[in-house]
């Protein structure tokens, strides 16, 4: 396990938070987080950092990253990620993205395929399939979402989400310092994913432009994104394969860091 260090980076939209560390490997590995804003202290990244240079930027609105006022939609998000890669001096890299981060990685890879050597998308959103809707995440009680995000009932974050329900009766009792980051990250997710709901209608027809060999990971207990989305990604990206992960839900990398690390490293050819 290799600890990542917190850095800041001046991006075109403002100062953002970047967690990085690890050993030089065959290619730098960039991790794009989900709407959960995971990254700092994340076991998966610390494992990957044993053999890789890992870089995990936090999107505007997450952590202390600024600049959300300059992001209006998923295209702005893709250009922001490109800008971050430029400023990190990464002409190319391997990319791992979870959910929202998987969508951003795909949007980057269809526009600038040369910037992505190999790619892993875990439970990515980003597509609309008429018969397989993505579950509503906005306006839902945290206790309900907990069961869709985590297969393990006892996961500490899932437990915290269940505990939040009791506090809703009197929100004035919740310390605002706890609420502030949640409100900010939800606003950031809404900016890119409110409407069209967590998808880009043009993405599917562009996925043929991706040149990176791509692994799509679908967690069997995912309560947010149906398996059909993983299948659609896997069949539209020219060099892609799909693997299923047991005993994990939407936030699989938080629940099964060892297994996800193994899948990632195998796919990246380490």
């Amino acid at each position: 396990m290799t600890t990542l260090a917190r850095h800041t980076l001046d991006s075109a939209v403002g100062e953002i938070e970047v967690h990085r560390g690890g050993s030089a490997g065959p290619a730098p590995l960039v991790y794009l987080h989900s709407a959960q804003g995971e990254g700092p202290g994340m076991a998966l990244l610390e494992q990957l950092a044993d053999t890789r240079q890992v870089v995990a930027p936090l999107f505007p609105g997450f952590g202390s990253s600024e600049g959300l006022q300059h992001i209006d939609d998923i295209e702005d998000a893709a250009f922001h990620v490109l800008d971050v890669l430029d400023r990190l001096d990464l002409p190319w890299c391997d990319m791992v993205g979870l959910s929202l981060g998987g969508w951003m990685a795909a949007e980057l890879a269809v526009r600038w395929p040369e910037r992505v050597r190999r790619m892993v998308l875990v439970n990515p959103v980003g597509l609309y399939l008429r018969d397989a809707p993505i579950t509503e995440i906005f306006g839902r009680a945290p206790s309900e979402l907990a069961g869709e995000l985590f297969a393990d009932h006892d996961n500490p974050i899932a437990q915290l989400m269940r505990a939040m329900d009791g506090m809703e009766a009197d929100p004035s009792q919740i310390p605002f310092e706890l609420v502030r980051p949640i409100l900010q990250s939800q606003a950031a997710t809404a900016k890119v994913g409110w409407n069209p709901y967590l998808h880009d209608p043009k993405l599917l027809s562009r996925l043929g432009r991706v040149t990176a060999p791509t692994l799509i990971v679908h967690a069997r207990k995912d309560g947010i994104v149906p398996r059909a989305h993983a299948e659609a990604y896997a069949s539209a990206i020219p060099d892609a394969k799909l693997v299923d992960l047991d005993a994990a839900a939407h936030l699989a990398p938080l629940e099964r860091p060892d297994e996800v690390a193994k899948l990632v490293l195998e796919h990246l050819g380490d």
Partner: peptide, 21 residues
């Protein structure tokens, strides 16, 4: 009273939460 994400600024949300009880 549903408050969608990004609907109020963070500084206003704090003020509104004080009254929510």
């Amino acid at each position: 009273n549903i408050s969608p994400p990004g609907y109020t600024s963070v500084r206003s949300a704090e003020n509104i939460m004080k009254n929510a009880g």
